[in-house]
Computed example of a mutant assay.
Amino acid sequence: MNASDLMTDEVETVHEDDDISDVLTRLARADFNGFPVVDDDDRVVGIVTQHDLVHIFQPSDRTLWIPVGFPPFLETLEYAIDLSWDDLDTELDLLKHAGKPVRTVMTEDVVTVGPDADFDRILDLLADDERDINRLPVVDEDGKLLGIVARQDVLRAVRDERRAKAESGL
């Protein structure tokens, strides 16, 4: 079994120049959590996931620390107020990023496989401890998208193989 046996060949993609707001809208309606990003020649140039898009609304440090105490301020308490999910702040972030192309937030170092990649190679990539890969774009020698293999496809294949073995008495 190889990538071409496992892949789905009807893949929803986004173009590297698509607006972030359009991609967010499409992703909100999708049954999955990311898109391969392609260029004008349908070559895979990146991948954009919910994780990539959420990060534009979660800046690293927007916590305001306020010392509170009474004169003569010998003892004070500090209260932290997280401003990162304030409605106005979120709307400002959306406005700031809405017209930008998705290539500004996509992951460029996308892991791909060829159509002849074997099952063990695919399994190793999807189970990698260092990267959290949920889907593998399948590309030809020129980097053009042929299909995609998701973790669910691999799990389904394992399940089907186990059932077939059980039914045959092996």
Rank of each mutant, 00 (worst) to 15 (best):
R162P: 01
D40T: 15
N134A: 14
R151H: 13
L77I: 13
L27N: 08
F70H: 09
F32L: 14
T104A: 08
D5M: 12
V45K: 02
D153Q: 09
V54E: 05
M1D: 04
G143C: 07
D61T: 10
S4E: 04
N134F: 10
D41G: 10
D153H: 10
V44K: 01
D40W: 12
D22F: 07
F70A: 12
L53I: 09
V102M: 03
F35I: 13
M106V: 07
D129K: 11
E141A: 13
S60T: 10
V139D: 02
H55P: 01
A164F: 04
V44A: 01
A127M: 07
V44M: 01
D17S: 13
T13C: 06
V154Y: 04
V37Q: 02
V54W: 03
N33H: 15
V14H: 00
V37A: 00
W85L: 10
L136W: 00
T90L: 15
Y79A: 14
K96Q: 12
V113T: 03
A30Y: 13
D42F: 08
F35H: 02
D9H: 13
F70V: 10
N134Q: 15
V44C: 05
F70M: 09
E167R: 04
V139N: 04
D42V: 15
D41H: 15
F32K: 14
H51D: 12
G143D: 06
I20H: 00
D153A: 11
A30N: 08
V158D: 03
L155N: 08
F35S: 06
V11S: 05
I66F: 05
D5G: 11
T8K: 10
L125A: 06
P72I: 05
D17V: 03
V68L: 13
E130H: 15
L53C: 01
A164G: 03
F73R: 05
T112A: 14
I133N: 02
R159C: 05
V37I: 05
V44H: 00
V68G: 07
